[in-house]
Amino acid sequence: MTDRDAIERFLEMMAAQAGAAANTLAAYRRDLTLASDVLAGALARADADALARLADEWRDLSRATVARKAAALRRFFGFLLDEGDRADDPSRALPRPGTRRALPRTLGHADVDRLFAAVAARLARDPPIATDLRLAALIELLYGSGLRASELVSLPRNAVHPDRPFLILKGKGGRERLVPLSDRARAAVAAWRAHVPAAAGYLFPSGGTHISRVRLFQLVRGIAAEAGIPPDRISPHVLRHAFATHLLEGGADLRALQTMLGHADIATTEIYTHVDRRRLVDLVNERHPLERTLAEARVDASVSGT
């Protein structure tokens, strides 16, 4: 069994059984191939000592990179064990550096208000300019539905129906999910779509395809500058995170949010949607049954004079 054969079989399993996306498969291929090169093509047969040498090669890499590489190898060796290609799993020798995922940047409610005020100022032109209608539709969908940049720019022309408050997307790993649409977003899309040729395949066409993620990034930063928001504080992904954060702050259920964002793992949603600690403390103090019992006891005590 060569490393190349083992890696290809592993990637086939990840695609077929785990539904791994193309980018995920490419990352696994890269990490496994590099590890195989370091071990002179003997990765699939590596023992604990060989993996220790491999880990030594990673000593100058960041903790996040080491954690990613080690996770890829652990899954690879688990696959070989399950397939009967190995009788043991040497991956315990791999480092576990641990890595904390930084909380993504977000925008406050005041920032979002300024952003939409800048969009409204553009739309106030008479007559409105088509590119401003496109911008309004893009911003409404980013913040109002939490779409990924790649999902947004590649929306089909008729993906948003005027009488349907949701759309169905196929996201990472080919998983479908239902995405809610606000009345504002549907109205903005309808106004823009009137300027999109009926023969166009995409809602936001450009040339023979759709606008790029880079162009979307530029458009978002441009309107943010008009709103007085520093360019380094905003991006399409920041607006997606603001959507999630503000929904959670408003009382949205974490599982529902996981579905809307298209996260396969609830842990991703928990990291992605941080909530102000003080609000959580206040929530416990106000809503916890024990707190209510203690409050009632204090009232009874004051009434009885004890």
Rank of each mutant, 00 (worst) to 15 (best):
residue 3 D to V: 06
residue 8 E to D: 15
residue 10 F to S: 11
residue 14 M to P: 01
residue 16 A to R: 08
residue 16 A to N: 12
residue 17 Q to S: 04
residue 18 A to Y: 06
residue 19 G to N: 12
residue 21 A to Q: 08
residue 26 A to T: 14
residue 28 Y to G: 10
residue 33 T to R: 14
residue 34 L to D: 15
residue 45 R to I: 08
residue 48 A to V: 14
residue 50 A to L: 04
residue 55 A to W: 06
residue 59 R to Y: 02
residue 60 D to R: 13
residue 60 D to K: 05
residue 61 L to H: 08
residue 65 T to L: 05
residue 73 L to K: 08
residue 75 R to T: 14
residue 78 G to R: 14
residue 80 L to W: 05
residue 81 L to G: 00
residue 87 A to R: 13
residue 89 D to G: 04
residue 91 S to M: 10
residue 93 A to G: 15
residue 95 P to T: 10
residue 96 R to N: 12
residue 100 R to K: 14
residue 103 L to V: 13
residue 108 G to N: 03
residue 109 H to C: 02
residue 112 V to G: 02
residue 114 R to F: 00
residue 116 F to N: 02
residue 116 F to R: 03
residue 122 R to Q: 12
residue 123 L to V: 09
residue 130 A to W: 03
residue 130 A to D: 15
residue 132 D to A: 04
residue 136 A to G: 02
residue 140 E to M: 05
residue 142 L to D: 00
residue 143 Y to T: 06
residue 143 Y to P: 06
residue 151 E to G: 03
residue 153 V to R: 00
residue 156 P to R: 05
residue 156 P to L: 04
residue 156 P to C: 07
residue 156 P to N: 06
residue 157 R to P: 05
residue 164 R to A: 12
residue 167 L to Q: 05
residue 171 G to P: 06
residue 174 G to D: 09
residue 176 E to L: 11
residue 176 E to C: 11
residue 176 E to G: 03
residue 180 P to C: 01
residue 188 A to Q: 07
residue 192 W to F: 14
residue 194 A to L: 13
residue 194 A to V: 11
residue 198 A to I: 10
residue 201 G to K: 10
residue 205 P to Y: 00
residue 206 S to C: 13
residue 211 I to F: 06
residue 211 I to M: 14
residue 213 R to H: 02
residue 216 L to I: 11
residue 219 L to N: 07
residue 220 V to W: 03
residue 220 V to R: 03
residue 224 A to E: 00
residue 228 G to R: 03
residue 231 P to R: 14
residue 234 I to Y: 05
residue 244 A to D: 07
residue 250 G to M: 02
residue 251 G to D: 03
residue 257 L to V: 10
residue 261 L to W: 07
residue 272 Y to W: 03
residue 275 V to Q: 05
residue 282 D to E: 15
residue 282 D to S: 12
residue 287 R to K: 08
residue 288 H to S: 09
residue 289 P to H: 09
residue 290 L to P: 01
residue 291 E to R: 13
residue 298 R to W: 05
residue 298 R to T: 13
residue 301 A to P: 00
residue 303 V to M: 11
residue 305 G to H: 10
